[in-house]
Design a protein around this nucleic acid. Structure first.
Lengths: 148, 148
DNA sequence: GTGAGTGCAAACGATTTGCACGGTG
DNA sequence: CACCGTGCAAATCGTTTGCACTCAC
C-alpha cells in the first residue's frame, strides 16, 4: 500500500500532518508516533516520559502544544476521565472507554456502529458530531483479584 | 409523604445524609440545597459563589470536601467535560449531557431507558455500574444565532 | 528569508492538603 | 467528650503562556 520501506509507517505522519495544514516537525512526529506505538491512552506527561526514555526528549510545554494542535486537526482524540486526567490517543477507530473505579485502567470498548457516533438522543438539542461514552465500574482483573 | 412543613424539602437531606453514614452539618446541607435549587450543573466555584450570595458562605476548600463526600456517597454525580471543568448535580434521575462546542452550554439529555445505565458494551470488560455519555456539537441556540 | 514551532521557565487556575478550632452524635 | 467536619491558607498538579531562538517551507 505504502511505497517505501518504513517499518513504522512513520512517513504517514508527514502526509497526515501536511494534509491538515500543519508543518512537519520533529516533536510532532515524535508525539504522534509515541501515541501510535503505545496503542492505548496516554496522558501528556506519559508522552513526555516515553519520549524522554526513548532518547528523544520533548519539552512538556511543547507536548501540550503539539497535542492541542493535532487534536484540533482531528488526528488525535482527547478524553477527559476526571479532573487533570486528560488522555490522548490516535483518532483512527471510534470507540468508547471503560474506566475501572478501582485500578483506574482504561479499556477500549468498540462502538457498535462503526466510525460514526453510534448514539443519538431522542430530543432535539443541536447538531451532534460526537458521542463520548465512559463506562465506569470494576474491571474483570480487579474482580478476579478478590473483593478488595 | 414527609411529616413536617419544610417547603424546600430540606429535611430530606438530613435523612439522606444519615442514610449514607454522613453527619448532618450546615455546609453539607447548604451545598446539597444549592445544587438542588439550581437544578442544573454547577462547578465547585459556582456553588461557593451561590452560597456566598445567599448570605450563607462556605469556604472553597470545604465545598470541595463536601462535594467529594457526597459524590462518594452517591448523592451527587460529577461529570467532567474537560480539564478543570468538573460539574456537579444531584443524582436523582439518570441522564446524559450535550455540550455545545461553541458556547459551552450543557443540556441534559434524558436516558432512554430510565434510571439505569441504558447502554451496554458488547464485550466483557467488567462490571459496569455507570454509563456516562457526553454528546458534543453545536446547540440549537448557537445555530440559530448564525454560522458564527 | 519569514513565520510557524520549539524550548525554557514562569504564570495560572482548579483542586488538595495540613493543622487548629468547633460542632455533631 | 471524642471525633468528624470546618475554616483558613499554603501546597500541589495539570495545563497554559510569554519570549527569544530555530527550523520548515
Amino acid at each position: 500500500m505504502v511505497t517505501g520501506h518504513a517499518d513504522t509507517e512513520q512517513q504517514t505522519w508527514e502526509d497526515r500532518l501536511r494534509a491538515v495544514g500543519l508543518r512537519v516537525t520533529r516533536p510532532r512526529v515524535l508525539v504522534l508516533d509515541a501515541l501510535r506505538r503505545h496503542g492505548g491512552h496516554r496522558s501528556a506527561d506519559e508522552v513526555v516520559e516515553a519520549l524522554r526514555r526513548r532518547g528523544t526528549p520533548v519539552t512538556r510545554g511543547t507536548v501540550y502544544k503539539v497535542l492541542a494542535d493535532v487534536v484540533a486537526a482531528g488526528l488525535v482524540m482527547v478524553a477527559d476521565h476526571g479532573p487533570g486526567r486528560a488522555v490522548y490517543e490516535i483518532a483512527d477507530l471510534w470507540h468508547h472507554h471503560f474506566v475501572c473505579r478501582r485500578c483506574g485502567t482504561i479499556i477500549d470498548v468498540p462502538c457498535m456502529e462503526g466510525d460514526k457516533p453510534c448514539l443519538r438522543p431522542d430530543v432535539a438539542v443541536g447538531e451532534i458530531d460526537e458521542a463520548q461514552v465512559i463506562f465506569r465500574g470494576i474491571c474483570d482483573a480487579c474482580r478476579a483479584g478478590g473483593p478488595r
